[in-house]
Amino acid sequence: MEPLRTRLVGSWRLADWKVFSDAGPTDPPLGPAERCTGLLIYTPEGTMSAHLTLKDRARFTDASLDGGSPQEKAAAYSSLIAYAGTWDLDEATDTVVHHVRIATFPNFVGTGLKRVCVFEDADTLKLDTPPMDMGGEARASYVLWRRTDGRNV
């Protein structure tokens, strides 16, 4: 079997996303996974970028780069989770750590987000996330990714 690093490098598109509470599976913060899209990139040099967003985001009335009413900006912020930084692995536990340098959610910056890697096959990656605070409750989640060449995100 190829090393975990070799299997992770490349581009991945969002296939599924679930959050778990004491009551069972729930939708993620952006809403049902079928309404979302995403892109995850791991470079061989150790850089990573993750973007999860609603597929149909409302456009701003003012199309200039600094446009958008406060309400439009709030809606745009609440429809996107994005961060980037570096990554490293613990091969023994199949864990990848995303060392966040920039993020839409400022509390991620400077943290190491651990994800357990489960390959369902060579082109399907499930990242299991330890419990995180969501809505005042610690909730575990997973994001399922499918390998992509970047053209079908």
Rank of each mutant, 00 (worst) to 15 (best):
E91Y: 01
R101C: 01
V96D: 02
T93M: 01
Y77I: 12
K114I: 04
A82Q: 08
A122P: 04
W87F: 13
K114R: 15
F108S: 06
A103E: 09
L113T: 07
L89I: 05
G85F: 10
D123W: 02
D88W: 12
S79N: 13
A74L: 15
T93N: 07
A103Y: 06
F119C: 06
T104I: 09
S78W: 07
V96Y: 00
W87R: 01
A92P: 03
D94K: 00
F108T: 07
D94R: 06
T111Y: 09
T93D: 05
G110N: 09
T124M: 02
S78I: 07
R115G: 06
W87D: 01
A122G: 03
S78P: 05
A75W: 11
L89Y: 00
V100K: 11
A92I: 02
S79I: 10
G85N: 10
G85C: 13
C117G: 03
I81M: 12
C117R: 00
G85W: 04
V109P: 05
F108A: 08
V97C: 11
D90W: 05
T104L: 11
W87E: 07
D94Q: 02
R115C: 00
A75T: 14
T93S: 12
F105W: 13
C117H: 02
A82S: 11
A74N: 14
A74P: 10
E120K: 09
R115E: 05
E120W: 07
V100Q: 10
V116A: 05
R101V: 10
T95K: 02
G85Y: 09
Y83R: 04
L113C: 06
I81T: 09
V100I: 15
K114L: 13
A84N: 08
V97S: 11
H98S: 12
V116N: 03
A76F: 06
E120I: 04
T111D: 15
A74V: 13
A74G: 12
Y77E: 09
L113G: 09
N107A: 15
D123A: 08
V100R: 10
P106T: 13
T86W: 07
V116S: 00
